[in-house]
């Protein structure tokens, strides 16, 4: 129970701190906006061709924007030192990891929702309520997967020189499976269908695998920062 309380306090603290400062939110929002514009010039946007690539456009935008948020998890000014302080506190390491995952997921969702709106607007899409529900569900589970793995890798790379590039280099290949699944599931939802058990199974298996891995490995990753290193 105490670690749950600690988790809640850490999530709320981290989230409100970022909401006040807004540096990362602005950067993520810009990233999403710019990516959508790049796509508008990079690929044909007539409705027929767009039907085949719209899920890919949406997910590439979300991936690039989410990575900015994930990268921020420990890199933003003072976050690294803050983590060192946290590691000295009696809060358990897995709790710190889970709290950082939850707060990062919250920032990412804060930007993902308006990005989806802008995507619908720029590319003249309209979807039914059911499709919207499926897309929201897919996005929630997938972004959770991005963040579970991303926060773990970010904790490994943030203190390395050139770590921001390194994070992307190691994160993107590992995200390929969940990304491909999300694109396929979203594409079906846009076409009026629904994702099936394979989509759900793969995304959930990915989320749980890497959440478990983060739970077990986070402690090892930050060892040189903590007291009993």
């Amino acid at each position: 129970m105490t670690s749950f309380r600690a988790w809640r306090v850490l999530v709320a603290w981290d989230f409100t701190r970022e909401m006040r400062r807004k540096n990362t939110l602005v950067a993520m929002g810009m990233m999403a906006l710019v990516t959508l514009f790049v796509f508008a010039f990079a690929i044909p946007t007539s409705s027929v061709e767009l039907d085949q690539s719209r899920a890919g456009i949406l997910w590439t935008t979300l991936l690039l924007a989410a990575t900015v948020g994930i990268d921020r998890a420990f890199r933003a000014d003072g976050e690294g030192r803050l983590l060192e302080g946290l590691l000295l506190s009696p809060v358990s390491r897995p709790t710190i990891y889970h709290a950082r995952v939850a707060s990062t997921l919250l920032f990412v969702l804060t930007i993902a929702v308006p990005s989806f709106g802008l995507f619908m607007l720029f590319f003249n899409q309209s979807v039914s309520a059911a499709a919207l529900g499926w897309i929201a569900l897919t996005a929630l589970a997938t972004l959770f997967g991005f963040v579970t793995l991303g926060v773990l890798l970010s904790s490994l790379t943030f203190s390395v020189r050139g770590g921001d590039v390194l994070l992307r280099v190691v994160l993107f290949p590992l995200l390929v499976p969940i990304f491909a699944t999300a694109v396929d599931a979203t594409s079906r939802a846009f076409d009026g269908g629904a994702p099936d058990a394979r989509h759900a199974g793969l995304i959930l298996a990915f989320d749980l695998t890497f959440l478990g891995a983060g739970h077990l490995l986070f402690d090892h990753g930050v060892k040189d920062l903590g007291p009993q290193g």
């Binding site: 890798l153 490994l156 390929v176 499976p177 491909a180 396929d184 695998t209 891995a213 490995l217 990753g221």
Partner: peptide, 20 residues
């Protein structure tokens, strides 16, 4: 840690590519 994560990703990659 990365080597461990990389092997864990193998099955998801295999099925994602096969299915989707």
């Amino acid at each position: 840690i990365y080597g461990i994560l990389a092997l864990l990703a193998y099955m998801p990659v295999k099925y994602a590519v096969e299915w989707f």
